[in-house]
């Protein structure tokens, strides 16, 4: 049991790193109302770019920045496929994700790159979890604060309006193609940043590291919403909730691993969780809609 408790800080660190990724998912899925599957590829792109740059001696902060920019570019590619070429958003994301698979292999010149913390200057490592937690805690607060401010600006409001009601947005003079671009770019930039941080923490980048990221991210968003719902409707609290959801997800994961339960079933569990939480509100609406069907909207 002592070992189990000792493994919790590491689970929290993982939760915070994947929480950054989940924030990216929150921006597209909840704010922009697009299910963007690009992220499965973008996590690895961020990790790959960061790993290769750090190994070749580039300053680690600069590596983070460049990794984030690569993610932004990936988001722009999905935008191009979706908005300019008219491909449905889900398929556009899958196409970019597949492109990124090849791109990631080329970046790493193989399936993985090691970034051992003993050899290279990194910002955080699982060899020193307390320090990693301090770094991640600060990072989470900074991200929440910046996004809170951004979505309160004129541009931020137009992005929220676009996801909420696209017809109204156009009628109010919002260039919805542009707002979708900003949203997708921002989201994938943040996801790539999480990948870059993850590769430093675990000491390597790997071609498989983004697999199922979208589902993990959605699960975190949903768990977070369930926890935070009663507390506050404040946007900053909602963002913090995403981190909370992700940390809970990884504590559950750690528990499953520790008690040697079947980890093969984890993806099934996360997928079912997401399906249930997205499906139940829909069914509820269907049922209540049937009752009150017909009749005008009352004043």
């Amino acid at each position: 049991m002592g070992n189990f408790i000792a493994s919790m800080p590491s689970a929290i660190a993982q939760g915070l790193i994947w929480g950054i990724m989940a924030i990216g998912v929150y921006i597209t899925f909840r704010i922009l109302d697009i299910a963007d599957l690009t992220v499965d590829g973008t996590v690895c792109t961020g990790a790959a770019v960061c790993a290769v740059l750090v190994v070749s001696g580039v300053n680690v902060w600069l590596a983070l920045l460049i990794a984030t920019i690569e993610g932004i570019i990936a988001g722009c590619v999905t935008w191009f496929l979706h908005v300019v070429l008219g491909i449905p958003a889900i398929l556009a994301g899958i196409l970019t994700q597949l492109m990124l698979w090849s791109v990631n292999l080329k970046i790493m010149s193989g399936a993985n790159v090691a970034v051992p913390s003993r050899t290279f200057q990194v910002l955080l490592t699982q060899m020193n979890v307390p320090m990693a937690l301090v770094f991640l805690g600060i990072t989470a607060v900074v991200i929440i604060a910046l996004l809170y401010l951004f979505f309160g600006t004129e541009i931020g409001c137009t992005i929220r309006a676009t996801g909420n009601n696209i017809a109204m947005s156009r009628a109010q003079g919002i260039n919805t193609n542009l707002t979708k671009l900003i949203g997708l770019a921002l989201s994938n930039g943040i996801v790539a940043l999480s990948g870059a941080i993850l590769c430093q923490y675990q000491g390597f980048s790997d071609i498989n590291m983004g697999k199922g990221a979208i589902v993990t991210g959605l699960a975190s968003v949903i768990i977070g919403e369930a926890v935070i719902r009663k507390i506050s409707k404040n946007f900053a609290v909602k963002l913090a909730g995403v981190f909370v959801g992700s940390v809970i997800y990884w504590i559950v994961y750690q528990t499953v691993v520790f008690f040697k339960l079947d980890t093969d079933l984890l993806k099934m569990l996360s997928a079912l969780l997401v399906a249930v939480f997205l499906g139940v509100p829909y069914l509820k609406k269907q049922l209540s809609g049937r009752k009150s069907k017909g009749g005008a909207v009352n004043g």
Binding site: T153, E154, I155, C157, T158, G173
Partner: peptide
């Protein structure tokens, strides 16, 4: 927020506060 969006119809959007 809805009114603020309408008040900015046709104006260039910036990083100034949304309202």
């Amino acid at each position: 927020e809805n009114l603020a969006l309408a008040a900015r119809r046709g104006k260039r959007k910036t990083l100034a506060p949304g309202i």
